[in-house]
Design a protein around this nucleic acid. Structure first.
Lengths: 219, 219
DNA sequence: TGCACTATTGATCAACTGATCAATAAATTT
DNA sequence: AAATTTATTGATCAGTTGATCAATAGTGCA
């Protein structure tokens, strides 16, 4: 009862082991942040010697970058699916805002914030961050363009408006991360801001939402 | 022509030396980010042995935290002064937005973003971050409340609206930090969003601004 | 069965971090 | 001038990080 020193890991196919390492990295990143994705922490979680992680990954910067992409990519896919399920632009937009601001993905927000910071010293990560931001922007721009075509959204530049919207969301989430506790309801006021951004009448988004029965009670 | 090994530092009063160390930390943080504020980097910049930095600071976490507070505190003071110089609420708000989004303080934005990330592992820093966010919020809330009283701003909850506004600003700046280059004009669209947030007619803020001759040409 | 391939590992490195402490040296006081 | 105080330092420690490499041990093939 002393050294819980990991037994030799069973031999697996490179594909399988590689996937396990990626999974371990994803888990550590979600639970403790991207900064905790180290050679040894991942090895420990995967039940493997540190050298094996190094064997499968060109370097840790790359693992951190791919881990970021995996996590954020999954988030984008998930939210994109939720949006696509909504039948109408205003409700799509409301779903987008409510989903991203409901606090259920704070672990992903941590990953985002750390990626912004770490990206300054990890080029591969910085590139991944830009890629995933672009991917988000495409999704949001799609919602806006459809809204312009079908639901009276007003904007000269859907692309720029999408960036603006994303920036607002990211900022509110990052803020909520720090302001634990007394963070009021992020997401209630943003509806007004977005209505202003898109030239919609006050209440247009909230109305579309409550009409769809998506109201949360408290938070 | 080999070892530029620092000569013994001249003896100074604790107050003076302490200030020099704080200055060195401020400089490093602004030029290379908070993560670069290390015992040795600060010692080198201050022209002093690493042990002396440790002698003057209880620990590095505290130095990082106080450095953050110094930098952000100065930013708040500066912007608060700029705002106070404006005679009217709409122009005050416009000045606030334009000043914070003109990209002239990106070095401070880096400090903010890194503080959000590092604060997760540095309690003293996390506390400083909360304090400075509160300080910002007070300033913004003041602008809003005056606008409600004098310039037709509409909001039920000036405090929450101030947080919303800050979140938007932080998010756009953080985003611009990463999206080097193709970051369109942050700050042009935000006027519409803020108008929506405060129940102002479209163009109310931009009009107040250009009327005051504060227009920037390009960026 | 024995050979070849390769997944896996322990040991080890260099580089960096924050921190401590006895020794040194410059002031100030006596 | 001597003693005292204290600013400053070098040396050193323990801890972390990413990375390399020869040695080990499963696995499948001949």
């Amino acid at each position: 009862m002393s050294t819980p020193a990991r037994a030799r890991a069973s031999r697996k196919s490179p594909a399988e082991r590689s996937a396990e390492i990626a999974d371990a990295a994803r888990g550590v990143a979600l639970e403790q942040g991207l900064a905790a994705v180290t050679l040894r922490s991942i090895a420990a979680r995967a039940g493997v010697a540190p050298a094996l992680v190094a064997h499968y990954e060109p370097n840790m910067d790359a693992l951190v970058a791919s881990t970021f992409s995996t996590i954020v990519g999954a988030e984008i896919d998930e939210v994109a699916r939720l949006i696509a399920a909504q039948p109408e632009p205003r409700r799509r937009l409301g779903t987008l805002l409510d989903t991203l601001l409901d606090g259920a993905r704070d672990d992903v927000t941590v990953v985002w914030v750390e990626a912004w910071a770490l990206g300054r010293r990890n080029d591969a990560l910085a590139a991944s961050v830009r890629d995933q931001m672009d991917a988000w922007q495409v999704v949001v721009q799609g919602v806006i363009e459809q809204g312009v075509a079908e639901a009276g959204f007003e904007t000269d530049d859907a692309a720029a408006t999408a960036w603006q919207l994303l920036g607002m969301i990211d900022g509110l989430n990052a803020q909520a991360l720090v302001r634990w506790g007394d963070t009021g309801d992020r997401g209630s006021l943003i509806h007004r801001a977005v209505e202003g951004l898109l030239g919609l009448p006050r209440g247009a988004l909230s109305a579309a939402r409550s009409a769809s029965g998506a109201g949360r009670t408290t938070r």
